[in-house]
Design a protein around this nucleic acid. Structure first.
Lengths: 197, 197
DNA sequence: CACGAGATTGCCCTGAGGGCAAAATTGCCC
DNA sequence: GGGCAATTTTGCCCTCAGGGCAATCTCGTG
């Protein structure tokens, strides 16, 4: 399992991960507002200043995991066959992505959902979401060049896609785990798909 | 033109507006980062502390106008006949709303667009947008109760609607003013409408 | 093993955010 | 008009965020 990364890089990544996890843990335990950058740095055994070298803010640190996951999803999407229709590629990549990680402790998720209602987290998250939507639109547009409705179609499709995921996740979260998330996503995406034939 | 508002309320509103305009003016002139709350307060002839009584941050102050406009749009939407189909109501309310304010100095708009690329503005704006999307979805759902695809349909429609507006505005902004914004919006919404018959 | 690139840390300064109580302003009654 | 209660404005203070800078330490390589 040896990677071609240097010790430096591995350490850097470990520090980043440690800070991310420390931030998440402390915020979940005490609430976001009660946690300072100093506390997070302490928890991760680095200096306050080092925290700032890695992340611009608490919110940034907490959402690090999301960024990684989004990157991963984009990779999987780009890896789909180029001739695959956009919505189909989106669906396949998403299902693969969700299958890739089964770790979903319900209790942890519940507290996480609470944390995400926090205004400052919400704001950063939405901004990240807008960026993702843009990238998805680009990827979609690349998959059927010369479509008459561009650039409208790809944008609308990207936002419809993300909205569908959000709604499905929301519904799934409420009626907790009564149905596999996989299946719910597949069904939800299929239903909306008809509008983008 | 006498309103039934007390002097207190009118003064309060005037102060809020003054702070908003001061914030916008200074940010457009010097860039958001170069403007402090103290400077904004000075510009509006109140104390720094009073600024904080009205707005939680510079971003908040700058986006005050948007909040007001969004509220106005929602009012107009709710005022549409209850039996009107969702997309039609959205279109009508939007067109009425844009017609209501013709003030669009291109130079001012250009700088405003620049300002909105600022990360912290962007984040707040996106969060506000998500909230608006939610309210639109509620309004949409109310307009055809018992639709088989709820709650998916209303959410997806709301996001498609806002995305369409964004794309139209973007295109219109680039090819500056070659066509009335009204007409561009109408055309864009009509094109996407077909997916939500 | 020595040295250069890169990472960590401490120090410092400006600005944000918000509690609190004193001072000013407004609304209302006599 | 004058007095009084409610509301708003202001100044003071304290903690935390963000980030520049230089000293120090660690890793990778010749």
């Amino acid at each position: 399992m040896e990677e071609t990364t240097t010790l430096r890089e591995r350490k850097k990544e470990a520090t980043r991960q440690a800070l991310h996890e420390a931030a998440l843990r402390l915020a979940l335990e005490h609430g976001l507002d009660a946690v300072t950058r100093d506390a997070i740095a302490d928890e991760a055994n680095v200096s306050r200043r080092t925290f700032s070298n890695y992340f611009a803010s608490k919110e940034d640190a907490i959402l690090h995991g999301d960024r990684v996951r989004v990157q991963r999803l984009l990779e999987m999407l780009r890896a789909r066959p180029a001739r695959e229709a956009p919505w189909q590629a989106l669906t396949a990549a998403t299902l693969a992505h969700y299958r890739e990680r089964g770790d979903l402790d319900p209790d942890w998720l519940a507290r996480l959902r609470l944390l995400r209602r926090h205004p400052s987290i919400l704001a950063e998250q939405m901004a990240a979401n807008a960026k993702l939507e843009d990238e998805l639109a680009t990827e979609i547009a690349a998959r059927d060049p010369g479509h008459p409705d561009e650039p409208m179609r790809s944008r609308v499709m990207a936002s419809a896609f993300l909205t569908t995921l959000r709604v499905v996740a929301g519904i799934w979260a409420e009626s907790n785990g009564s149905e596999p998330l996989d299946e719910a996503i597949r069904a939800g995406l299929a239903r909306v798909a008809e509008r983008f034939k």
